[in-house]
């Protein structure tokens, strides 16, 4: 187990190094990208440009620049944004993280519960009309664009009905839990639903297919031959083994979302989370922020990956190290 953890950690370092190098060089090798020009105002004189360059350290060799940036991210933690001089990038991310975590955690709970309910129901009701109905619903959820659902939700809750049915919904934006737990919750209800709809559709379909496949396994037949109830066979034998696939998918999706993948939802609902930050940084070609967000995102994906592997070992005794 210890070697497993050590190996995982070492790989994480290697993966993150490669990611940062790739992001860094893509940024500088993309034609038309010049942070100095963006900062120096309209029609800058060559001297001003050179000054800005020197100030940002852009006149130094790329390798040195890369090294400096890594140092400022990991050691001195004083990396400064290009677009908003004086803004320290790392505290900015840490400030944005709680909003994203609140959004993604809530949505994940909804989508896990709903996907299991729908997937199990569809598998159980196979051969009846409910199964295709559930699966078509899932397909609709899977294909509806997040920004569209978000806009529609906003139109309804912030528009015509805001003064009657949806008066409890606060204006767009994120309220910290520590400020007001009630507003935190009410403000996130619709973002949660919006974000989870896509995943409910996807997970319900995957789970149903997986359940049906496992139902043909010999050990499920054994479970029936033992005289267990259909319900017990489904929950303790079929669903339990399905969870192996389910959990690995979930880990990856969850990691990606926490790492800034919920951009659309955050933007539509005005939640200033990591995704929102990424969106802004991309618009301004703000390399320091992009770099920091990428590293932060990669960290979560790799972390979730490791957690998935541990969960795997817990769920499936066959892969446990002896």
């Amino acid at each position: 187990m210890l070697t497993f953890i050590i190996r995982r950690t070492l790989w994480t370092v290697v993966v993150m190094f490669v990611i940062t190098v790739v992001v860094f060089f893509i940024f500088f090798k993309t034609p038309g990208v010049d942070p100095a020009r963006a900062l120096a105002g309209r029609n800058p004189s060559p001297q001003t440009l050179a000054e800005v360059r020197a100030q940002l350290g852009l006149n130094r060799p790329l390798l040195v620049q890369y090294g400096l940036m890594m140092k400022r991210i990991f050691i001195t933690r004083n990396l400064v944004s290009y677009s908003d001089q004086g803004q320290l990038v790392i505290p900015e991310i840490f400030a944005a993280a709680p909003a994203t975590l609140s959004l993604v955690f809530g949505a994940a709970i909804i989508w896990i519960v709903m996907a299991i309910v729908m997937g199990v129901a569809a598998a159980r009701l196979r051969g009846r009309i409910y199964d295709p109905i559930l699966m078509i619903l899932a397909l609709i959820g899977l294909s509806a664009p997040v920004f569209w659902i978000g806009q529609v939700a906003n139109l309804i809750t912030q528009g015509g009905l805001h003064n009657s049915v949806f008066s409890w919904v606060p204006p767009l934006g994120y309220t910290s839990f520590t400020v007001s737990p009630l507003h935190w919750f009410t403000g996130l209800v619709f973002p949660w639903i919006t974000l989870s709809i896509l995943y409910i559709g996807f997970y319900a379909r995957v789970l149903r297919a997986n359940l049906l496949e496992i139902q043909t396994e010999d050990y499920v037949r054994t479970a029936r031959a033992k005289g267990l109830s259909e319900r017990r066979v489904l929950l303790r034998h079929t669903l339990r083994t399905s969870m192996i696939t389910f959990v690995s998918l979930f880990g990856l999706d969850f990691g990606a979302l926490v790492g800034g993948g919920a951009i659309l939802t955050e933007v539509v609902f005005g939640i200033h989370g990591v995704g929102f930050l990424t969106w802004q940084a991309l618009q301004n070609l703000d390399l320091p922020t992009i770099m920091a967000v990428v590293i932060y995102g990669a960290f979560f994906i790799v972390l979730m990956n490791a957690l998935v592997d541990i969960a795997y070992a817990w769920l499936d005794p066959r892969v446990r190290p002896a």
Binding site: E217, D218, Y219, R221, T222, A223, A225, K226, H237, R240, T241, I244, L315, D316, P317, R318
Partner: peptide
């Protein structure tokens, strides 16, 4: 009435 099957490798739940 109980039953045993052909393939013991797959007839027991692995988890």
């Amino acid at each position: 009435i109980s039953m045993i099957f052909q393939d013991p490798m797959t007839s027991l739940n692995p988890v």
